[in-house]
Design a protein around this nucleic acid. Structure first.
Lengths: 134, 134
DNA sequence: AGGTAACAGGACTTGACAAGTCCTTTATTC
DNA sequence: GAATAAAGGACTTGTCAAGTCCTGTTACCT
């Protein structure tokens, strides 16, 4: 249970690669895909999402490619995985109060909230800088 | 991301109901299903799994049904969800060392291990007794 | 023994979503 | 305007979630 999808896994690989490059270098999608061993067409979709959520900047045309939108130590693992996988939600009922008609008497509800918080805490405290320095 | 399936959700509901009943009462599947608002045929599958992993005892025939196999304070939420959802695995690479050919240099690996441990810690420290007393 | 109550187990269905692929368009540079 | 590279949409394929249904097996009851 609780598994990350391949998309999430690939997303992390790809952006960690970006973070390990010189800060102002623009990397080609083809280069990233080859380096982290992910199908290029699939990685393209992932980086489009990154681009939309603003954690990477993209440039088209000759000399184009991708680079981080901010310094590696200002992007957390949480931002990366939530960008492609959506918010961390151990159970639907955690979405918001009232979402689940059982929540008034559901004793498990607070446990899921606690799980959600812990996961977010861990992932939110790891930056790309931490991950890139290997 | 990280969502529990309905099966897992239903599993928790069902067994918490059992835990809230008098310790030696045998409950009918039909009774449990109605009480927690889950399709009975689906809940049947779930309780079969519980039965196989030994956290509930089942009895066939007239007067049959289900009861907890041990006291409610000896069954953890972790046991319940892992019984039906499989082990807590934030990423496939956490399965075991060597599973992922990238793990020797993958800096994210320890993070997933940490997430896994935290989730297991939280769920492993909540018993059905805690959940049944509402 | 026969009938009925209740769980066990297998086969099947339906729909959604994961995991990609492919093609066309748009933006940029030379 | 030709080449380069990302953006975006449409499509495919397979797997798995979420059930349903039917038959079998076990246990009790008269």
């Amino acid at each position: 249970m609780m598994e990350l999808t391949r998309k999430g896994d690939y997303a992390v690989r790809g952006i960690v690669y970006l973070a390990s490059q010189p800060p102002d270098k623009i990397s080609l999608l083809s280069e990233i895909a080859a380096a982290v061993d992910v199908p290029q067409t699939f990685l393209a979709k992932i980086f489009q999402q990154f681009s939309k959520t603003g954690i990477v900047k993209s440039f088209r045309g000759t000399g184009g490619g991708f680079m981080l939108a901010c310094p590696a130590d200002e992007i957390t693992l949480l931002q990366v995985v939530e960008a492609v996988e959506g918010p961390v939600l151990p159970n639907r009922c955690v979405l918001k109060p009232g979402e689940c008609e059982r929540d008034s008497f559901c004793t498990v509800h607070p446990i899921w909230l606690q799980v959600q918080k812990q996961i977010r805490d861990i992932l939110g405290n790891v930056t790309l800088k931490d991950l890139a320095s290997s």
